[in-house]
Amino acid sequence: MNTLRPALGPTRRTSHLRRHAPWVALAAALGLSLLLPGQALADFWTPESGGSSNADAIDNLYKFVLAISAIIFIGVEGALIYCLVKFRARKGAVAAQIRGNTRLEIGWTVGAAAIVIVLAVATFIALPSIRNPDDSGAAGLNLAASGVAPGVLVAAGPTKKLPPSGKSLNIKVVGQQYLWRYSYPDGDENTLNDTFSYEEMVVPTDTAVTLDIQARDVAHSWWIPALGGKFDALPGYTNYTWFKVPKGMEGRVFTGQCAELCGRNHANMTARVRAVSPADFEAFIAQRKQDIQSANDAAATTRKQLEPELSDSGSAEPKQ
């Protein structure tokens, strides 16, 4: 029989310390990696939040899942390590020849299923507060009277949700390589002449903002972590989300960036959302309108000046 096992050899009786040293090293490495972050500990374990109630609701749901996970993690790893320490081969020890235990196996299958059900229930409880937009508050932009966005400009759909009042400031977000373009409603039916801005979106506080997210070229993904989750911008589709920056956060800027690989400069496709008071927001829109108008006028003047030259030089440019 000896030839069957030449390799089971002399390593069996190493010292207690030596056997555990690697585990200790691993625990120390993990522990150290947790201590290093210091003051930013909150974001070490959980997603960002704080700019909108839907992001906060996701954060809370995440913390719930994290708590359950921590219990499972400690329980299972604990059982594993206990077995490894307690049942290592010793002189004279004989392994119990157990082939299974139907009751126990049914037990932990049901247990695992029960945990899953708890998680599903928690998700369904949290879902409305994440998915469904809040109404604007009293201090928000007055959507009925404002010169910017009077009345209801949007309609709900199977994937688009509106606040209970049916009123929101609906901003169109369009991703293109490597820039985000936002267009703000201006109260008329024509969306082509809407005021727009690039990269930085300006929004009024305490106001329900709904976003229609689209893409012009390749797939992008809209993401401002503190204002809620990601929503892909896909050519041919419109995706929807919402947020509401609480009153008192005027002046705060929330940053984020495109989260779907969209080409070589994907890393530089950043986005900002600046929260301002409703009055400042209306002023911003008025200013943008004026700026765009004067830029258009200047362009028209230049075009007019160039037109004779162009036609003289036999340009193939189509005339209007």
Binding site: L8, L80, C83, L84, F87, A93, A95, A96
Partner: peptide
């Protein structure tokens, strides 16, 4: 883990 339980682990 139950396979390790009460074994003699080498």
């Amino acid at each position: 883990i139950a396979t390790l339980w009460r074994g003699t682990i080498e």
